[in-house]
Design a protein around this nucleic acid. Structure first.
Lengths: 148, 148
DNA sequence: CCATATAGTCAGGCTACTTGCCCACTGTGT
DNA sequence: ACACAGTGGGCAAGTAGCCTGACTATATGG
């Protein structure tokens, strides 16, 4: 196999990712969540996992704790999350999604699933399952958020 | 197939894309190009295709012509491209890569191919070819650059 | 020749980050 | 009991990359 064929796959994966991100963004907008960016979605993932503080979130997102603090402040103002005092640490504040935050998360998941289901329709069940399995094989531990 | 399995594929494609972008970025840095961002790489793709002006580039990248102009100015200052008068239009300036610009483009392509070759190694030739074909099937015309 | 459209730049502003600094609280060792 | 290094979080200021709006110069169709 030649490099230009490898390159073709590289471009393909970029375009497919673009489809996914656009699909999520548009799906969220259709559901009335037009004030969230993908970064917020990645934050929701970490917060949903529980026991998240601002510093935890910063590590997860790969940004400074100040940036994470600003992001949390915005999401709190917009009613997506609340900050509660940490039960065992007077310095820390536990992050938790509000009902609106949970609704937004479910909306993002639904929009993502829609886009992926479209792939399944295009490919057929068999090829899609193969794709899913193959992608799962390629996943290595590391950052989720593909930002640049 | 359930939604959470679709969701798993969505996360997988995000993580795989993150690998690719990080691989390109790091590969370029190893080759001495530490002052270019992925956006610049997408610009190189369009400029390499020939007959590119600032406005063409703006359309291709999905940004305003002002933003494209700033990007071109930076790349020109850093020696990656030159602006020549357009042969048939006194307003326009044709963009062209310098030798350094071509070298950077080749470096990015090599780094991308390296990352994709690693996938081929992990998967084996047969599964990799299937993945490539499947991804090619999913590609639809649209923006290349997955920004958010 | 004039009206309108287009290529590009200049100026200013917004937003999402950054670094540097500070304070409050924790917990560990002596 | 207490000093002290470490950590969670916020404040302030700076930066980078994008935006909108306004402008000049050139092109093009009546």
């Amino acid at each position: 196999m030649q490099d230009d064929e490898h390159l073709g796959s590289a471009f393909a994966v970029l375009r497919v990712t673009t489809q996914l991100l656009d699909g999520i963004q548009q799906g969220l907008a259709r559901r009335g969540f037009d004030d969230v960016r993908p970064m917020h979605g990645f934050a929701f993932v970490r917060i949903s996992a529980g026991d998240a503080t601002v510093v935890d979130l910063a590590d997860y997102l790969g940004v400074t704790k100040q940036a994470a603090g600003q992001l949390v402040e915005q999401l709190a103002q917009r009613g997506y999350l609340t900050r509660k005092p940490h039960p065992h640490d007077g310095r820390a504040r536990l992050l938790a999604l509000t009902p609106r935050g949970h609704a937004c998360t479910r909306g993002a998941e639904a929009a993502a699933a829609e886009t992926v289901r479209a792939w399944e329709t295009t490919l057929g069940r068999e090829d899609f399952d193969a794709l899913s399995a193959t992608l799962a094989t390629l996943v290595v531990p590391g950052r989720l958020r593909p930002l640049w």
